[in-house]
């Protein structure tokens, strides 16, 4: 008995911006179901009174002064893709 259906796998895939093809779908259903079965072993422990961990060493988030520290490296960074124009990144048309 699978814990999740093919429909659920497709739904999660969409949320994660992935697509799973028909051939691979049964394999994902089996593997993800097995992983969830493993994960659900947690439910045997009552944790109502336990505070969830926020940081393993109980450290607080360090803050810094609000000032610019990074130089502008737009040209350097945009060398990493072919799809730029006039300093902007190109994607398929979004607005008609």
């Amino acid at each position: 008995m699978s814990r999740i259906s093919e429909e659920t796998v497709n739904k999660i895939a969409h949320l994660a911006r992935l697509s799973i093809n028909e051939q691979e779908l049964p394999e994902y259903v089996t593997n993800l179901s097995n992983i969830l079965t493993l994960v659900e072993e947690m439910s045997q422990f009552d944790t109502k009174q336990i505070q969830a961990m926020a940081h393993p060493l109980a450290m607080s988030q360090r803050l810094r002064e609000d000032k610019v520290t990074e130089p502008n490296q737009r040209e350097e960074m945009q060398k990493l893709t072919k799809f730029t124009e006039a300093g902007l990144y190109l994607v398929p048309q979004v607005i008609e």
Binding site: V39, M42, S43, F45, T47, I50, M53, P56
Partner: peptide, 15 residues
């Protein structure tokens, strides 16, 4: 709650 929160609580117990 069932997954992430629960796991972070378990994590506290482990520590």
């Amino acid at each position: 709650d069932a997954y992430y929160l629960k796991a972070q609580q378990i994590r506290q117990l482990i520590r």
